[in-house]
Design a protein around this nucleic acid. Structure first.
Lengths: 209, 209
DNA sequence: CCAAAAGCTGAAGGTTCCTTCATATCCTGA
DNA sequence: TCAGGATATGAAGGAACCTTCAGCTTTTGG
């Protein structure tokens, strides 16, 4: 009895031909652009379809309703993000804690900055839907990866991995997001990024010292 | 030539009699409740008015449109928050840096936690409007207060107050928000809060040592 | 080449919502 | 007490939007 998260949120049809795969991608991209240009309030099915160069009906062949579209978009983004974090965690197994933290900052910072507008657009869209499920799933996946990584630190065994993980994850993700929301200049961003790493390092010394 | 932020966002009329002051408060409170119960997507003028126990027309006597209502709500909240931060900063003048940081964490954490649902509701609503202006104004006010405070630290002169402020502000505000968005248990929250303070302290030693 | 499947179209139904305004009630100061 | 400003009402206009569906075009597999 595995109930689907929300029956109305599942994709209606999976693209089979390459033509339709292109269409779906165009719809996603159009959604991002409309979100960027006009904001969530002006995200209408017509506008998205128009910008994607397809008709409204086409949209409804792949998404049962507008909400499902936004949901899928965020799902896709968070999936990629989680994948990146997992990759970094795998690569840093057995490294010293400080290096791990630095790598995590780098990865997250890069992910957010690379396509800054997209990030910003998505932040504007998650709010509408029942994002608890989505964000919780992401957090669980990321936490699993980072916790596993921290447990392999070569610094000597960490007493309370969960506490360490909770702290570093919250501080890093939170700070990066906050930095992102202020419109920092490049130099400010560099300073903050460096200081964030320094802070993690300083904390780790206290923690495992 | 000081152009108003957005002509349509200014209040239409200021309450004069006590009766109307009550009404406006009821409308604000109703907005929060609807936001909480049904989310931003279901925030309709009718619903708000109904919950506030007034008619739709009444709403439009104080707010030119729906957007202005949400805007005013956030403005009010951020104003209070900024006021609190300023108060803490004033009280901690001349203290050691570590104490300042701790007080800041306390204040911000308390402000967010005290009426957690309200905070959550507002987070859901800022996204819709042109929040850049609002958030930027808040950040500027808070930064001014904290920077001034840090400059009076009795630890010996800080080399680069702006860098210190940027770092601590971003880390503290960001982390608290992130902590708030995960649904932390009480014990997790306590641990994180303690570690955040420890982190700031560790960083400060590095910085001013 | 052909039939079936996949994909696409877009006008229109039906709903929801924002906002107005003419009217009615309440409050204050004289 | 009374006039006039302040406040409240809520039905209705009008605009915007989501979603459907019957029919058309393109692609695939044999």
């Amino acid at each position: 009895m595995t109930r689907a998260p929300k029956p109305a949120l599942k994709a209606r049809k999976t693209p089979m031909q390459s033509r339709s795969r292109v269409t779906v991608d165009a719809i996603f991209e159009a959604t991002i652009q409309v979100l960027l240009r006009d904001g969530m309030g002006a995200l209408t099915t017509t506008r998205v379809a128009e910008r994607a160069g397809v008709s409204v009906g086409t949209m409804y062949q792949y998404f049962p309703n507008k909400q499902a579209l936004v949901y899928a978009l965020n799902e896709r983004y968070l999936d990629t993000l989680a994948g990146r974090i997992e990759a970094v965690c795998a690569r840093m197994q057995g490294a010293p804690l400080a290096k791990m933290a630095e790598a995590l900052v780098d990865a997250y910072w890069a992910a957010k900055t690379e396509r800054a507008e997209v990030t910003r657009a998505l932040y504007r869209s998650v709010v509408e839907l029942d994002n608890d499920a989505l964000l919780h799933a992401f957090a669980a996946r990321a936490d699993a990866a980072t916790t596993a990584m921290f447990a392999t630190a070569c610094d000597g065994a960490v007493e309370d991995v969960d506490a360490l993980n909770l702290t570093l994850a919250s501080v890093i993700y939170g700070t990066v997001r906050n930095a992102f929301e202020r419109g920092l200049t490049d130099s400010e961003a560099r300073v903050l990024r460096g200081n964030l790493v320094a802070m993690c390092r300083a904390y780790i010394c206290t923690f495992s010292g």
